[in-house]
Nucleic acid binder design. Structure first.
Lengths: 357, 357
DNA sequence: TTGAAAGCGCTACCAT
DNA sequence: ATGGTAGCGCTTTCAA
C-alpha cells in the first residue's frame, strides 16, 4: 500500500486514483470529499485520509466546468500607480479571499486595446463577475469595452468611475462634491484666484471635478477665471512634476498668472506640487495654498501636512464586493445599486487663511 | 438564420452551437477557430464569422482541462500597504498581460493560515506557476507553506525574500548590501551613533539588514551600540508613526539615548519618521539625519528630499516573470536562477555632513 | 449507501 | 479537408 501511495504521488492525483485505492467508485469518492450526507461516515473518513496522503487537491477547473460557478472575480483597473487603487484593491482582497474566491487582476494603463484583451480573457476564464474601473469619456459614455461586458451579460460593478447615463452598479466617491468641498474651503479662507489642477481631459471624472469647482464659485457668486483650469493627461507623478515645474516657472514666478490657492484632483498631483515648491524655494501655504483629494496615508507626513478631501477607500472596495456578490448569488433578484460614499474635508496645514491678514 | 442567431446568443455559446449553424463537426470548428492549417480557408472564414456573430468566447477552463496549461500565474504577496509591492506588481502585470496570461493575486497580511488557504486555492486552480514573496523565519526557513509548494512541484519564483538555505529561484534585491550602503553613507558623513530602525523581528529580512549595518561598522572598526537596534512588528505606516513618536519622546528628546543618524529599512518607515519630526518640531537633518531603503517615487517630494537606497522594482518584477516563464516552458531544462539586483545610493538632502562642523 | 454512466466544452487521435 | 470519438476531472442523475 505505501509503495502504491508513493507512486500515485508522482502523477497529478484525481478522484480516480483515490477511488482505486479506496476500492470505491468515483461517485462515492466525490460525495465523501464534499461531506455529502449520502456518504457514510466511515467512507468519508477513509476517503479523506487517502486524499491527504496522496496530496490530493480538487481540480477547480473541472469543478467549474461541471457546475456553473468559477469562484473567480475579475478586476479591471487602469492606474496601479495611484495608491488610491492599491488601497481599494486591498479591501477587495480581504473580503474575497476569506470567501475562497480567486481574484484575477488586470491592469492596462490607459491602453484600451490591452484592456479589451484583458476583458475577453476574463470572459474566457468564465469569471463570476467583474469589478471595473473604467475611463469614461465625457461625451461617449458607452465605450466598446463597456458594451462588451453588457452584451455578454457579465455581472459588473463599476468602481470609482461609471457611465452615469447608464443603469449600472457602482461603488465609489462623489467626485463632484469632493472638489466642491475643496474649492469651498479655499473660498472660505478668502482665496479667490484658485488654480484647478486636474487630470485626464475629456473624461467624466475631469468633468465632475470641474462641476464641483464651478458649483462652489457659483454658490458664492464669485467669478471664474477659466485660465486657471489646467488638465494633465494622467495622474503620473513624474509627469505632473515636470509639467508643474515648467508651468510655475512660466506663469507664476513671473506673475503672468496669479493665484493664491490650488485645488488638485488627486493627492499624487498635490505631492508633485510639493516637490516643485521645495525645489523652487516656494512656500506652502505662504506662496500658495493647496487642497487635494484622496487622503492617502502618507500625505500627513508632508511638510506642511496636506489638507485634503478624504475618499473612503476601504468602504468603496467593500461595497463593490458586497454589491457584486449579491447579484451573483441572486441572479433572479438582481439589484442595480449605486453606493456613493460621501467625501469630507481633512483639515491640516496647507491652507492659509487670507482673511486674517 | 438571423432568428436562429438571436436565439443562440442568449445561451452560453460553444463550439457545438457554431458547428450546428455552420453545418460542420465540432472538430472542424475547433480547428478553424485555432487557424489549424488542416482547415480550409473558406471554413475558417465561415466559422469565425459565425463565432463573432454569436459572441463566442472559448471556455478557457475546458481548454486547460483538456491540455495541461492554464495560462494563469499566481501571486502570493503579504504586504499590499507597501508601495514597493505595488510597483513590482505593476511590472509583473505589464509583462504577463501582454502574453495573455491571467494573474491571480493573493494577499494575506501576515496571516499564515490565510496564506495557506490561498496557496491551496492556487493549486486547485492549477496555475502554471507562482511568484511568492514569503515571510522567512530566520531560524526555520522551511515553513509549512513553502513545503506545500515544493511537495506539489509547483513552479515557484521567490520574490524579495527567499529561504537562502534552499535551492530555489529568486528575484529581488540585495538587502544586506543595501543597508550596508545606507549605514556606510552615514558613517562617511561623520555619524557614529546610528539608529537601525527595522521591521519584522526574527525574519531573514531583518537579519540581512542587521548584517548590512554591522558590516559597515566592522569595516571601519567602529563600535556598535545594540541599544540603537529597534525592530517594529511590520511595515505599517500608522503603526510606525505611533511607535516612533513615543520612542523619540521617551528616549531622544530627554537625551536618554543619543543618535545623530537613522537607517530605516524601508521608505514607509522613513516617511513616518518625517511625520513625527514635523509634529515635534524636530529638524531633518539638523536634529538627526536619515537614510532609507526602497526609493519609492514620492520620497523625492518630502522636505528635505529623502536620501535612500534604490531598489529596482521594475527589474525585480520583470526578472521574476522571465525566470518563471522559462521554467514553465522548459520543464526538461529548468534553471535554478537567482537574480539579485544591486542597490545603489540616491543622494538627496536628508543627511548632514558632521565633518564640516 | 453505493455504482454506472452521461455530460460540462474542448482537443486530438484515427478514420475517411 | 472533415467527421467520429474518446477523454481531461468532476458532479449528478438514475438504478441497484
Amino acid at each position: 500500500m505505501t509503495e502504491q501511495l508513493k507512486e500515485e504521488k508522482l502523477k497529478k492525483v484525481n478522484i480516480k486514483h483515490i477511488a482505486k485505492i479506496a476500492n470505491l467508485s468515483t461517485s462515492t469518492v466525490s460525495r465523501a470529499l464534499r461531506n455529502d450526507p449520502e456518504a457514510s461516515k466511515e467512507t468519508i473518513e477513509k476517503v479523506k485520509l487517502i486524499a491527504e496522503k496522496l496530496n490530493y487537491y480538487p481540480n477547480a477547473m473541472a469543478k467549474s466546468l461541471r457546475g456553473d460557478k468559477s469562484y473567480t472575480i475579475g478586476i479591471v483597473f487602469n492606474d496601479m500607480n495611484n495608491p488610491f487603487y492599491s488601497d481599494v484593491l486591498r479591501s477587495i482582497f480581504e473580503k474575497l479571499n476569506k470567501l475562497n474566491y480567486s481574484i484575477i487582476v488586470t491592469y492596462y494603463n490607459w491602453d484600451f486595446e490591452q484592456e479589451r484583451k484583458n476583458i475577453i480573457n476574463l470572459i474566457s476564464k468564465r469569471v463570476d463577475g467583474i469589478i471595473y474601473s473604467p475611463i469614461i469619456s465625457q461625451l461617449n459614455q458607452q465605450t466598446d469595452n463597456i458594451s462588451l461586458l453588457m452584451e455578454n451579460g457579465i455581472e459588473t460593478v463599476y468602481l470609482d468611475n461609471y457611465p452615469d447615463k447608464l443603469n449600472v452598479c457602482y461603488s465609489g466617491g462623489d467626485h463632484k462634491k469632493a472638489i466642491y468641498l475643496a474649492t469651498k474651503h479655499l473660498l472660505d479662507n478668502g482665496h479667490r484666484d484658485i488654480l484647478l489642477y486636474s487630470a485626464m481631459p475629456d473624461t467624466l471624472y475631469a468633468k465632475q471635478c470641474e462641476d464641483g469647482y464651478i458649483g462652489a464659485f457659483s454658490e458664492k457668486k464669485f467669478e471664474i477665471n477659466k485660465e486657471l483650469f489646467v488638465t494633465l493627461d494622467n495622474f503620473d507623478f513624474q509627469n505632473s512634476y515636470i509639467y508643474f515645474k515648467k508651468f510655475i516657472t512660466n506663469n507664476f514666478k513671473n506673475k503672468k498668472l496669479k493665484f493664491t490657492g490650488i485645488v488638485a484632483t488627486g493627492d499624487i498631483l498635490a505631492i508633485s506640487i510639493y516637490k516643485v515648491a521645495n525645489e523652487l524655494g516656494l512656500s506652502i501655504p505662504d506662496d500658495f495654498s493647496i487642497v487635494s483629494y484622496d487622503n492617502i496615508e502618507i500625505v500627513s507626513a508632508l511638510n506642511p501636512p496636506l489638507t485634503t478631501i478624504h475618499q473612503p477607500r476601504k468602504e468603496i472596495g467593500e461595497n463593490a464586493v458586497r454589491i457584486l456578490l449579491h447579484n451573483i448569488n441572486n441572479k433572479k433578484n438582481r439589484k442595480i445599486e449605486k453606493s456613493i460614499m460621501s467625501p469630507y474635508l481633512v483639515n491640516r496645514k496647507s491652507v492659509k487663511n487670507l482673511k486674517q491678514i
